[in-house]
Each structure stands twice: as C-alpha cells, then as structure tokens.
Design a protein around this nucleic acid. Structure first.
Lengths: 331, 331
DNA sequence: ATGAAAGCGCTAACAT
DNA sequence: ATGTTAGCGCTTTCAT
C-alpha cells in the first residue's frame, strides 16, 4: 500500500480511503488509484485489515462428532446443509471455518481458535449439549443453532417443524391402515423427541394407545442403526410400519428387514425424514418428511448476521411437508 | 497481555515468551505467568498474532461445484473426506476454511480471500480444471489436490490407484462370466478416465474387444446419473454388467434398472467405486472399489505441511482393494 | 479533498 | 533471564 501511495503520489491514507470507496476522495483520484492497484496486481493484506478492524469475516460451523461411532451426526443431510451455508455466507462476504469437534470437547470449545477467531458460530444440530450451548450463548458470541426450538435455550434456533413432521408421517401411515407403527429415533435428542411427540399426537387423535415398546433409540449413524434394527428383528418385535428419524435410518431399516425376508412396503411400511437426494433412488424409494435445507441455510445466515450487527434474532420454525413415494405403500 | 505483564511485574515480552513456552524464561516465571493467565482467563489475540507472524494457521479446502447441476462433485465421499481432513488438520493445529466455488469462478480464485488468507490450499477433486490448478501452483502457494496423478501437473496429487481399481472391478466381473460390461463414468475427468483405462486393460488381458458403445459419460450427481441411465435403458443398450465410477452412480443405476424390471445382480452385475458407508446397506449391497479416505486425508495434510515448511512433496498413490458384496453376483 | 500520525496486540532482534 | 524497542499493514482521528 505504501508503494501504491508513492506511485500515485498520495499518502497511504488516501489509498486506503480510495480502495474502501470513501466519498471523501475525489472520484478522479479514486479511479486513478483503483487503476494503479489493478495494474500492479495489488492485494490488500487481509490479516492486517482484520487485525485493525477486530473483525475476521469468518463464521465457524461446528460439526459435532459422536465419540462412540466416530461418525458425523447426520451424514448426507449435513453435507447439503454445509453447501447451503457456504453459499449463503459467501454471498454475504463471509468465509466458513469448519470445525470438527468431539462431543466430549464441548466444555472447552470457547477456548478454541474456531470460537475466538470468528465473528459468529453456527451449530448444525445441538445433540444433547443444550447446557454447553447455553453457556456459550451467555458469553455474548453471535450464534445460531440448527435444530429443535427448546423451552429454555439462550440461543437462536432455526429448524424444521419436527412435531408436525412426525405427525404427518404417522398420520399418513394410519390413513393407509397401519396400526402397529414403530418409531426409530433417539428421543434423548431434541429433534427426534419432537418428532416422537408428533407421532404420539397422531396416534392419540386416532384413539390409539401409545405402546412404548414400539419406540427405539436408534442412533443416527447408519451402520449402528442397522445393527440395532437387526437386533429388534431378532427379538421378534412385531409391527407393520415405522417412522424413522432420518432417511439414512430408513435405509438401514430396509436392509435389516430384507435380512429377515420382511418386505417394504408390503410387510412394513416406512417413512423417513430429511428428503436427501438419495431418498428418491432407494429400493423402494422413500416416503419422507422434507426438510428445506436451502432455505434453512439462508435463514441461519440471516439470523447470524443480524446478531453480528447487534440486532436481536428470533427463533424460526420452517414449514415442512410429506413427500410420498413407494416405501409407505400408498401406491 | 499488557495487563498480565503489569500483574506479573514483568514486561510484555516476558509474558509473550512465557506463554509461547520459550526456554529463555525461567520455569518459575513461566509457571507464574501461566497461572495468572489462567486465573484472569486471558486469551491470546490470534488476529494480532497471525498478523505479526504473517501466518493464518488456516488451510482452505475447496469444493468445486458443478454449474449445471448445482451439485457437489461427489456427495458422501466428499463429506467423509472433509471429516478426515478436519481431523488431520486439527491435530496439526490448523483450522479448515471451507470454500464452495463454482467451476466458472476458478479463473479468479487467486483473488479470493480463501486463497489469500490461508497458508495452504487443498482441492478435493480436480474436475477438468488442470490448467487453472497449474496456474495456481505456479503462484507458489502450498497446495495439494486429491485425485488422479497427471503427467503434466505442476502440483502435488494424492489419490487412489484408479487404474488398478478399474482393473480389479472389471476382472472380477469377467471372472464371474460376464462379457458385455458397461462403464459408467465421465472420462473427460481424470479419475474416471484412469478407471476406464483399468477397465480396458482387464478386457484386453482377457482378449475381449473394447466396445465404445458400452462406455457412457454418466455424471457424478446421482439424480442426473439416474436420468442418464434411464435413457440408456430406453435406448435398449444391452449389457450384463457395469463398472460404475462411484457408489452413488451404482445406486442410481440400480434404481434405473428396477424401472425396467432388470434385476441386480441376476440380469446385470454391478461394481461401484468409493465404498462409502452406504454401500453395505443398499439393496443389494454393493461390490465396490474401496478408497481409503481416512488415510487419504492424513496423507494430504502431511504433504501440505511439508510444502508449508519449504520441503518438496511428491505425489502419492494409495493402495486400493475390491470389497465384494452381493451386487456383483459372486454369491 | 488530502496528509500526518497514532495505534491495534503481538513477536523478536538487540541490549543488558 | 529479562527489558527495550521497533514494526508488521492497515484504518481513522485530527489537522490542514
């Protein structure tokens, strides 16, 4: 910048202002400097700028990783969300710092570079870490969490209407004449829990009892989910339909059922959750509750930037709908 | 840090050195300062540090996005790789800056913050952008590309033995008595191209002719792949096996085949590529060429850090193997 | 409309 | 073993 100033026969301040597009500088000088910068391929030093402005123009996105499985909370869904966030952030001039954190390390996340070196932080999924997330939010860091809206959370959440999703899925199966409907999803986690609430509401509305033996805490990781559902079949669990807390769980279920000669949808009708691209191409294709990922990513970024600008940000619950394909036996 | 210095009755330099663990400082003082820092919850200002050291401790990971489809080059595989890279980088004290770039923007990537604000850059997949990648490498930026090793590339590549993978897949099918083997993968891209070479070698070894009508430039995006394979079936392409350039293409193929009443593996035997977690749970489960993603991520990071430290980094071709499951009809 | 000068928080060469 | 000092490249207040 110093060199540019010499070349243009002005001071560094003028160059700085010109490059920043300040109206204090005459249009002529501004253009002259812009041209020189271009010619000499001058690149502003971002590190110095960030340092001076105490900004980073970076947002951390945290993927929590399960200790046991070593797997991401929600594979393909997560990737699509990441793409959507990357797009939305780029459009706003922010970069995306991706952080891979084991759940066990959550207590010390506020000391991590990812936390300190960014202007805001996004969590995709809150796991069962509400307490830690509350603590972080109390530190005053701009923060948005994708997932279920919770009663006593101190942070801004954006998520699908999980309760409605669970309700729609279950009602769909009930309308098709299924009566013993299993629920596969870990209700110790907020999102599956809300989906389970919707499941219960649909049953109650129909005057059916809630049979707790039909709910199973199947994990999100598809390999482990598969093992778990195998075990259930082994134990002789009887049911004619299942609501799954993710599409990958549904896929894991189809495989487990096949091992026991149980056909989807004839013997067991299935509904998934997410509507990832894969859902349309499984055998059979999945009836599933759609989460609007693109919209979700954009809303998350909007809420986060609002906070960075000092504005309050309210929770958002996105609309959802059922996508009917063959796995539920509707046709 | 100024405050800490006052509290400890030493100079800032002493604090700086103590916190950096310099042996110049007596153990006693060092411990005293460490304790004070802890007590007062002192956090070193990374922005200032990075500025001063002209380092960022950040590595950019670029995901190229296809203009046409708006889809990532290779969904699930990509996510697993991302996780592996995030782990390896974190272990080395680096953060991961994720960049989502449309292929059309490759010409200007060297002006992006992602490029200028990081100590190194990783590309997952080189698409057909070899020229641009060469140009970037010539700029002297530490850089590693996951993908095929190419004759005239100026950059360091790490990748699977694609040729061998294609060979193993094809030979496996030939050994099972299949003779009209299709190849699904876009050979305008280096990796599918090398896999196709292996395919050709296996056929030639067996004394069979290369029938170009059996090779089709099916895209990586599974939805588009599905459409494409539908078309091929419609056109009445006759074959009894297929080597697919990714597991997702294989899954898309199974769905397309099912629409025409064609059964896998009875009517058509199938081999995929990647061995993503999903491959074991599709219907039928996929025989596939395994890419060792975890190892790949670690090697990429090692090669990149070598470059950052000024050492030369050579290309690496990782071992690969065939994982046999039901889709190839071996049992 | 432009320039001079201070300073962001840290590190490191140089001095003691 | 510790302190003094300069300076990284930029923005911005204050002066002109």
């Amino acid at each position: 910048m110093d060199e540019l100033a010499k070349l243009a026969n002005v001071s560094v301040s003028t160059v700085s202002r010109a490059l920043a597009g300040s109206t204090l500088i005459s249009t002529k000088t501004r253009e002259r400097i812009a041209k020189l910068a271009e010619e000499h391929n001058f690149q502003l030093n971002e590190k110095a700028r960030n340092f001076r402005l105490k900004k980073t123009n970076m947002i951390a996105v945290v993927m929590m990783v399960d200790i046991k499985s070593g797997q991401h909370i929600s594979d393909m869904f997560f990737l699509q969300m990441l793409g959507s966030l990357a797009d939305a952030l780029t459009a706003q001039g922010y970069d995306l710092l991706l952080t891979h954190i084991a759940i066990e390390d959550m207590p010390t996340i506020d000391r991590s570079r990812a936390f300190r070196q960014t202007d805001g932080i996004i969590f995709i999924g809150q796991g069962n870490q509400q307490e830690h997330l509350n603590r972080l939010a109390d530190l005053g860091k701009p923060m948005v969490v994708w997932g279920a809206e919770l009663e006593n959370s101190h942070y801004c959440t954006v998520g699908t209407n999980n309760e409605l999703g669970g309700y729609l899925a279950t009602k769909h199966l009930l309308n098709l004449g299924r009566e013993r409907i299993a629920f596969f999803g870990d209700i110790n986690f907020p999102e599956p829990q809300q989906r389970y609430s919707g499941y219960c509401r649909a049953l109650q509305e129909k005057g059916l009892p809630i049979d707790k033996s039909l709910q199973h805490n199947v994990p999100f990781d598809m390999t482990h989910a598969n093992t778990e559902i195998h075990d259930l079949m082994q134990q002789g669990l009887k049911f004619d339909a299942a609501v799954c807390s993710s599409d990958l769980i549904a896929i894991a279920a189809i495989d487990a059922f096949n091992s026991y000669g149980v056909k989807v949808p004839d013997d067991i009708a299935l509904v998934g959750f997410d509507d990832i691209a894969l859902a349309a191409l499984t055998q059979p294709p999945l009836t599933t509750v759609k989460q609007n990922i693109t919209q979700g990513g954009h809303v998350i970024v909007r809420k986060l930037l609002a906070q960075i600008n000092g504005d309050p940000a309210s929770d958002t619950i996105l609309k959802t709908e059922l996508v009917v394909r063959r796995s539920s036996g509707a046709w």
